[in-house]
């Protein structure tokens, strides 16, 4: 038998409004810590290389997900990346109209993974698959090792 007694008048249904506010202080992890330091200090992306399958990964990782062994070898990327895919967003996180931003997944030749970031205003019009891009960095003194150390990517 179902519950027969229902609330027939919507105004009789109560709601309770509150939030679950949370604050996190994340560690970057063993590999993340190295990646962030390289970005902060030298403005470059750190890559890990697997000694077994020879795959490289960006951002740097501690272990190769397919060989399941630790990756000890790292290198920093000097070459420009390329736009793998891109999208233009004109709503904010709440779904309201907001600033128009073009985001790209930037990949690097011969490296697995990639970096998601915005394209700079001048590059937006030229956005296309495969165009070569490089990061525009904040000044060294302002960098903290976060991806926000990069202002945007521009055409190389």
């Amino acid at each position: 038998m179902p519950i027969l007694e229902k609330i027939s008048q919507p105004s009789m249904a109560r709601h309770w409004t509150d939030s679950i506010p949370l604050e996190f202080h994340y560690t970057a992890g063993v590999a993340g810590e190295k990646f962030r330091r390289e970005l902060r200090d030298n403005g470059r992306f750190l890559v890990s290389k697997c000694a077994k399958c020879k795959n490289s990964y960006v951002p740097a990782r501690m272990f190769c997900p397919s060989c399941f062994i630790e990756m000890k070898e790292t290198r920093a990327i000097d070459e420009p990346g390329y736009v793998y895919s891109y999208t233009t967003v004109n709503r904010n996180r709440a779904g309201e109209p907001g600033e128009t931003v073009t985001l790209a997944l930037v990949k690097f030749e011969g490296v697995e993974g990639g970096i998601i970031h915005r394209l700079d205003d001048k590059t937006i019009d030229k956005a296309a698959f495969g165009i070569k891009v490089v990061p525009i960095l904040k000044d060294r003194t302002e960098r903290t090792g976060a991806l926000s150390d990069i202002i945007s990517f521009k055409q190389a």
Partner: peptide, 26 residues
């Protein structure tokens, strides 16, 4: 209380050790 390792990295370390102990690979 606090470890540098990320959740993925902690998981890897424990899993790797268990596999080694069992004499298995992934």
């Amino acid at each position: 209380r606090r470890m540098l390792e990320s959740p993925k990295e902690l998981s890897f370390e424990a899993s790797r050790m268990a596999l080694d102990a069992a004499g298995l690979t992934l």
